[in-house]
Each structure stands twice: as structure tokens, then as C-alpha cells.
Amino acid sequence: MKPDQFLQLREADWRELDDLLNRATKQPKSLTPTDATRLGDLYRAATSDLALARRDFPQDRVTSYLNQLVGRSHSLLYRKRRVSWERVWHYFRADIPLAFRQNIRLFGIAMVLLFGPALLAGILSYIDPELARFLLPPSVQGLIPEIEAGRLWTEIEVSQRPLFSSLITTNNIQVSFLAFAGGMLAGIFTTYILIFNGLMLGGILGLTFHYGIGWGLTEFVIAHGVVELSVIGIAGAAGLMLGRALVRPGLLSRGDALRIAARDAVKLAISAVPLLIVAGLIEGFISPNEFIPFAVKIAVGLGTGALMYTWLLLGGTRIFHLN
């Protein structure tokens, strides 16, 4: 058979398939169940047409037409479920906590990388404030004179609080995403972010305690700090997962190990978004509010922390399901 004869013979079907594909992409709702079945039939017919064309006239433009037609149908027909609210709900209810529990050891390591330097910097700068100058990054050195004068910088005007809250939240989410993405550099950048943030946290706290305003800062930090610092640890774990896959892929190829690790790691990175929004709202509106007593702030901090860890440790398990 010549290409032109073949084309004449099959043209009607190809045109119908082409029309259905266009409708399926542009107005998917206009497809009836009959149309959908027809689409499947026409696609299968087109695949065998393509096989035939490849054998008989591989170089002809009929073949490249069919190649394109089958390619378009394939990407439409084999498309996975669309993103639905149900999927999103399941993702947050079960997928994220499961990924967290499976990688809880890396979460532990991330927390050590965060709090180890924090503790060290805290003790050192409490004993000798001069050391804080070495430990604190230049960006926060400006706070040192404030602390020395016994002043806190945590008072935020009521009208400024929404802006402050959004700045804090977006910045924290950005840091979490960086900690995750930094895993691609063999985990080195992730480790750096964790240690850096730990030094900063510990250094400042130690310094404030040295100058007697430590409880004031603790009062400010406690309400949002539990969730916020845990999230840095979670995002750090996500980055370390990528780094581990690259450094120690085990029996898998590096590429495969990375792909498998990324599938779970991205869940942890995404969990940072809702958690940090909650933390940011608390940091913007509850933490700087001088009318809320210290005890309530502690309760908020411990309460949100307990909720978060309940979700992460029990989400998607049977215990949680029965509730």
C-alpha cells in the first residue's frame, strides 16, 4: 500500500480522533461517555496504524503525522487522576506523616545539627558575651548593642503586625525550601543552614540571658518557637534525605536513589507551608502581644507543638483513624 492510499483509507478515523483530542483538551466536560469509549477505540486503531506505517514507510510524513497523533492521545489517555481535594486531604492526613515517621532518624539528626550548635553558642555567649561576636552572623550583629543596653527588639506595633507576620512566614518557608533544595549539594548546604540557624538562635538567647533580658525574649519566642524550630528540623530532614541518596545510594543507582528519596522528601518540604503559616500568625499576633500572659503563651507553644507532633506521629495510623 502506498502512503496516500493508506491515508485515504484511514483519514476519517484520524480526523475523528483529532477532533476528540481537541475537545478533550479544550472542553473536557463536553465529552460524553460514548465519546470517551470512542476515543479509546480510535487511539488503539491509530497505534496499529502507526506500527504499520513505521514498517512500510518509516520516512514518510504520514508516519510523522501518526507519531504525533498517537503521542498526543497517549499523554491524554494515560494521564493520572487529576488533583482533587480528596487527594490533597489524604496527602496531608496520611502521606506526609508517614514520610515523616519513615525518616524520623534523619529528623533527629537534623534537630541535633540545629540544637547542638544552639546549645554550644548559648552557653558560650552566656559565659562570655565577647564570643557572641564570633558566633553570630554579620546580619544580626546589629542586635548586639540593643541587647547590651538591655533592650528587646520584639515589640511590634499593633498596626505593623500583619506585615510582620507575612514577612516572617514567607521568609521561614523560603528557608525551609532552601534546606530541602540544599540537599542536592550532597546535603552540605542543608547542614550549613541548620548549623547557621542553630548558632544564631543559641547565640542570641545566651547573650540576652547574660544581660538579664533572656526571659523577655523567651516569652516572645515560646508561643511560635516550638512549631517554627521543629519545621526547620523537618525541612532539614528533607534535605538530608536527598543528600543521603546522593552520597550513599546503596544498591541502587544514584539517579534511582535520588528519585525515590525526593518522592518522600518533597512531602516533608511541603508540610512546612501550613505549619509555618500557623507559626507566622502566632509570631505576628500572639507573641508580641503584651496583654497575653506568659503562661498563655507557653500553653500556645506547647499546645501547637503537641498538635503538630500528634499529627506527624499518628497521622494516617489506625489510632488516628478511629477518632
Binding site: 497517549h74 499523554s75 494515560y78 493520572k80 488533583v83 525550601f177 533544595a181 542536592m184 525526593a262 518540604a269
Partner: peptide, 19 residues
């Protein structure tokens, strides 16, 4: 593998865009 990408893969490749 030639299939359309999933939401999770879109998130991975674009969160890593920064690296």
C-alpha cells in the same frame, strides 16, 4: 517513562529550581 507528570513531580522539579 513518557507518562504525564504528577503534582508531586512538578513540586520536586520546581522546588529544586533554586539549586
Amino acid at each position: 517513562n513518557g507518562l504525564p507528570l504528577s503534582a508531586s513531580e512538578a513540586a520536586i522539579r520546581n522546588l529544586l529550581r533554586i539549586v
